[in-house]
Design a binder for these strands. Structure first.
Lengths: 145, 145
DNA sequence: ACTAAATACATAGCATGTTATGTATTTTAT
DNA sequence: ATAAAATACATAACATGCTATGTATTTAGT
């Protein structure tokens, strides 16, 4: 008796599902003047919060340079503003502009729409199981990186 | 009574899990002279198959221009060769070079390793459920794009 | 007090993927 | 037979994310 072969398609499935979801979000966000990568920033700053880049990178689950370039694009597009922290000149305090705040209000409804479509045909139980298993896999992967 | 709120974190979870998996594969593939995006090409051509770009793009589940640039990089790095189909000069027949064939032999073992780590702590049943649910979500998303 | 380490952010260079569009070539329809 | 549609691939421009590295600024250690 031999060990059952692990499913090799999990990587393909995970990345593909992620990409498809991003594509769907892009479709919905673009007409509203937002992009998929900006979602965590809008979620974190949507109520007028003022946060620094390190926090935002951790919140978004990406590396610091990725957040740096994302924020540079968002600043270019007038969605965020930055101000050097007077207490620690290394830190820049980041917040949404009035335009950013206004646009950000549509994020949650759009996410709800997309999630509803992604979960089409799922029972609430299946939905919860998928979330739980994905969270566990995500943790496993983080641990071995 | 109101409809239960759909889980909004599914998009984040899917994309994050995909990214983490890609990162893990990069760690394992780079020392072997391969990159994560090349996996489907190696899988499709690993036994000496000769296939065209359109087929490879569909197999990889990405758009045609993405495959075009991927193949350009792989050709640059001496992993694949292309030859115009004499029967239809629009088509280019693609195959792995000897070096590509040799490197490609390590793909499956590396995928097995990565899958084992991703599924750490999963029972076989949980594994199968995750696969099934991800496949269903992937199909749902494809349908509404 | 002052050098060394740590921290926050920026930049460079790249891979991967997307949409939009261009260019041959082949097929279809009249 | 030929103009029009379809097909296969390439290219441009961009977003997102990565690693590696640079640059201030702050904190710690002696």
């Amino acid at each position: 008796m031999r060990t059952q072969a692990p499913c090799l398609s999990i990587g393909f499935l995970a990345t593909t599902t992620g990409r498809l979801f991003t594509r769907l979000m892009e479709q919905k966000l673009k007409p509203a003047g937002m992009r998929a990568g900006q979602i965590p920033v809008f979620l974190a700053l949507g109520k007028g919060e003022i946060l620094n880049q390190k926090y935002l990178a951790e919140f978004a689950g990406i590396e610091q340079p990725g957040m740096a370039t994302l924020l540079a694009r968002m600043e270019r597009d007038g969605l965020i503003e930055r101000e050097t922290d007077p207490n620690d000149k290394r830190v820049s305090q980041i917040r949404l502009t009035p335009d950013g705040l206004m646009k950000g209000q549509k994020i949650i409804p759009i996410m709800e729409e997309a999630s509803k479509e992604a979960f089409k045909g799922f029972t609430p139980l299946e939905r919860d199981i998928l979330i739980t298993l994905l969270e566990r896999m995500s943790s496993s992967l983080e641990r071995c990186l």
